[in-house]
Amino acid sequence: MSERVKFFPGREIRSRSIDEVLASEYAADLKYSWASGAAMSRFLIELKNGRIIARKCNKCKRILLPPRIFCEDCFRETDGWFYVKDTGTVNTYSISYVAADASRLKEPLFVAVINIEGATEGMGFLHLLGEVSEKELKVGMRVGAVWKPEAERIGSILDIRYFKPI
């Protein structure tokens, strides 16, 4: 270190001594109602119908999924709707042992980015994998959507329960 600086400042509180210092606690529960927007509203309605819909851009010729009203590359309005399949390939996957608050899950979750067939190569979304064992998991495996029964669908990404190997 420079001659001018002799030490690095700071006072650590070890976890067992947190109760020995004065601390104040607060909690907030922020509630939101998010508008789904033009593209996502249609996407959710189609999920309710048991179909996956994308948008296409006539300039770069891409089939965009998740659908959006603009092409981020050409930076112009997209041109129309396009149904894609409810099958795809696993782009990458992992096995989650923890929940969002860092607590341990009872049963691990298999999660994957799935490239959806019919969309431009590499276009896909995040979802869960089911009816598959840890050993069978592979990058590149073909999977298909397992839908909730029509009566239970509400227009949510969870209208697809998970994807399973096909």
């Binding site: 959710l44 992992s94 989650s96 929940a99 969002a100 995040l126 949510s156 990404i157 969870l158």
Partner: peptide, 21 residues
């Protein structure tokens, strides 16, 4: 909030998926 949070996503997922890829 539409595509990912309902799935129970955690920050570590995105890293694990990237690392695996």
């Amino acid at each position: 909030h539409h595509m990912e949070r309902p799935l129970g996503v955690t920050l570590l997922w995105i890293f694990a998926l990237e690392m695996r890829r």
